[in-house]
Design a protein around this nucleic acid. Sequence first.
DNA 1: AAGTGGTCTAGACCACGTC
DNA 2: ACGTGGTCTAGACCACTTT
Lengths: 242, 242
Amino acid sequence: MTSESPTFSPLYRQIKDLMIQALEAGEWQPGQLIPSEQEFALRFGVSQGTVRKAIDELAAENLLVRRQGKGTFVATHQDPRALFRFLRLVPVEGQLSTPESIPLECWRAKAGVEAARMLGLRQGDPIMIVRRLLRFDGKPVVIDEIYLSGEQFKGLTLELLQSWTSSLYSLFEHRFGVRMIRASESIRAVAADRSAAEALKVPEGKPLLSVERVTYTYGDKPVEWRRGLYLTDEHFYLNELN
Amino acid sequence: MTSESPTFSPLYRQIKDLMIQALEAGEWQPGQLIPSEQEFALRFGVSQGTVRKAIDELAAENLLVRRQGKGTFVATHQDPRALFRFLRLVPVEGQLSTPESIPLECWRAKAGVEAARMLGLRQGDPIMIVRRLLRFDGKPVVIDEIYLSGEQFKGLTLELLQSWTSSLYSLFEHRFGVRMIRASESIRAVAADRSAAEALKVPEGKPLLSVERVTYTYGDKPVEWRRGLYLTDEHFYLNELN
DNA sequence: AAGTGGTCTAGACCACGTC
DNA sequence: ACGTGGTCTAGACCACTTT
């Protein structure tokens, strides 16, 4: 039953890979119920425990969500709890409130050196750029500049962004079939330039968090590069080290 | 075999808790080999698979380390790979180099309001304060101010800190029997005050990352509170979001 | 050869949610 | 009552390390 290839991979991992491929191909949509463990066991001709271990890993990676008694579901950014998985911003005091997203601009452009490298594109390839503001309790806290592959986000417009009421990633998921899986953030402290100072209503030179994020979809493919400037007077970036 | 308490907990979790208690009690020292899965199964009167699941979780939480063919070991901060689990600082370009820790000061004090709250002490309880610099390739990058419960770190002196060649946490582990398990970091952007500016050799007002960390040992007990100021000209704080 | 963790199986029963 | 994921068992064999 074991593979004879030089790079040995256990059965449950092969099954996991098959399931990832199915997810990538859109065989089950975000939020949808997938077949039961028994069903998979029959389909692949293995025991339920082996399927279980594959799903365990996918659930640990937040690709699937288990619900006892109900079944296993494809994870979705529609779920409000998914928002703060990528936005690690917490108020210094008081309750965690949901931010309000205000799209400011959205335009087509050609990838520069940096954007091309980050998104795995060639220089000059079409990209989309979005500028947007996040407000907590009416106060501006984050100004984001977001770079997307023009290929995958062809129909993106400012109107579409403004009409969408829930998170950006849920829009990407539902309208463009791109699901964000994981991200890597590089954090620095910088002084506010004029543009950021205006957007956040702070004096120029004010220390801000610069949060540069590369976001990946299935197969570790980069699909978003963004730079956010965070005002950390009343909020901070919370990181749990385990 | 299942507990009859209102808050039901599966067998493997009860075994996990027993193992945590043993670790906390120092039954096996950091780096040491613990008994085999079979041994535990006999000892607790359960099957090997149940012990396995308990150890799986402890390994996922970095309390234990599995090594196929050899056995399972108590995790240790002596391991150089453990260093960057808590220090998420990466050079903008070039290889990751190991920092040099330079203890500057170490003194006894009484806990103020904030330190007491963070460390779970009463105001006025004895604490130890350490100031130290981190240098990468000879350049100052981080200035840390570290607050420790005076109770647990009674014999800590500047001389001891200066004579210790590996990481702080490995010192705490070996000399004071305190093992750091997890931490929570709050990150802000601030302007360098005079003291930080001098230590890092930058102008006053320079934007710096302020990284406030509370570190916990077994049983989620806070034992360290520190504030680090990071110079992010040639390094950045790297955070993987999964 | 012996011991360890790693994988896989088949079957039992429990806890949870829905019909 | 039924189907789902969650726990637990007993036993087999594989992969890795040491003796």
